[in-house]
Simulated scan of single mutants.
Amino acid sequence: MSKRIYLFAIVAALLVPSVVGAQGMLMDMVANKVIDKYQSSTCDQLKTQKNEPPSAKEKKAIQLLRDDPQARTAFLNKVAGPITNKMFECGMIP
């Protein structure tokens, strides 16, 4: 019995970091997509998109970020600079 518990603990120890790593990779991919969207859009496109309601996919991502403070912090730390710079260039923030 103790061998099974030991084996389970080893498997769990190996799987948990890979799942967390996969979530981090997914968050990085999403953040990079958002950054690319802002950097490749014109100011007029961004101003138009600002008034559009979020898609179902975007709503789901927003809810995930609301539910996971660590993921939200990592995501915002990555996208804040590029998005803020673009918004400043477009006159969307003072």
Rank of each mutant, 00 (worst) to 15 (best):
M1V: 14
M1W: 12
R4P: 00
I5S: 10
I5K: 15
L7D: 02
L7I: 14
F8T: 10
F8E: 00
F8W: 14
F8P: 00
A9M: 15
A12N: 03
A13S: 10
A13K: 04
L14G: 06
L14Y: 03
V16Q: 06
P17Q: 12
V19W: 07
V19Y: 05
V20K: 14
Q23W: 08
G24M: 06
G24N: 11
M25Q: 02
L26H: 06
L26I: 09
M27V: 09
M27F: 02
D28W: 09
V30K: 06
A31C: 03
A31S: 07
K33L: 08
K33G: 11
V34G: 01
V34S: 05
I35S: 03
D36A: 13
D36H: 10
K37Y: 13
Y38E: 02
Q39S: 13
S41E: 07
S41R: 08
S41M: 12
T42K: 04
T42Y: 04
T42G: 15
T42D: 06
C43T: 02
D44C: 09
D44W: 06
D44Q: 12
K47R: 08
K50R: 14
N51I: 11
P53C: 02
P54D: 09
S55K: 03
S55F: 09
S55R: 06
A56D: 15
A56F: 14
A56T: 15
K57P: 07
E58G: 04
K59V: 13
K60A: 13
K60D: 10
I62K: 10
Q63R: 11
L64H: 09
L64I: 13
R66F: 07
D68C: 12
D68W: 10
D68I: 09
Q70E: 12
R72Y: 05
A74M: 05
L76P: 00
L76S: 07
N77M: 05
N77R: 07
K78F: 01
V79E: 00
G81W: 03
G81S: 10
P82V: 11
P82D: 04
I83T: 04
I83D: 00
T84A: 09
T84V: 02
N85M: 13
N85G: 08
M87I: 01
F88C: 07
F88V: 12
E89Y: 02
C90V: 13
C90E: 13
G91E: 11
G91K: 07
M92Y: 05
I93V: 14
I93F: 04
I93K: 13
